[in-house]
Amino acid sequence: MTNITLKKVITFAKYLAIILLSIDMIVLAIPKLLQMQFRMSHYRAFVPLAELPKPELMMSFFGRSYAYNIFIGLTELAVGVLIVFKRTRLLGLLISLGVCLNVFIINFEFDMVYEVKRHITMTLVLTIALLFEYRKDLYKFFIELGGKLSGEAFSVKNTIWKKLRIGYVILFPVAYFIFSFVVISSFDYNLIGSYEIKNTEIENKTIEFKKGTLGSTPMLFFEKNNILVLSVNDSIHYGSYTIENEDLFMRFWSTTNHPIEYIDAQFKDYTFITGTLNDSIPIQMEIKRLPVEKDYLNGMYVD
Results as ranks from 00 to 15, higher is better:
P282H: 01
I236T: 14
E261N: 15
M300P: 00
L101F: 13
A78C: 08
V302A: 00
L130W: 05
V229W: 02
D247V: 08
P291C: 06
Y66H: 12
I283F: 00
I19N: 07
I160V: 13
M112C: 06
I160A: 10
D111L: 10
N225W: 01
N245G: 08
D247E: 12
N278H: 00
E51I: 06
V84L: 13
S155V: 12
V47C: 05
R135Y: 09
C100M: 15
L191E: 09
T2E: 14
A13G: 04
I70Q: 06
K210C: 04
G151E: 09
S180E: 11
L126G: 08
E286W: 01
P291I: 08
R64C: 00
E196C: 10
K162H: 04
R64Y: 05
E133Q: 14
S194K: 10
F221R: 01
Y301S: 02
R44M: 12
L21S: 11
V103E: 04
Q37L: 08
Q266V: 14
A50M: 10
E293I: 07
Y238F: 15
K7E: 06
R87D: 04
V169P: 11
L248Y: 09
K198R: 15
W253S: 13
D303M: 11
D111R: 08
V79W: 04
I166T: 10
N225G: 02
E109D: 08
L33E: 07
V182Y: 09
N257E: 13
L94F: 08
A67R: 08
Y241L: 05
V99S: 09
A29H: 08
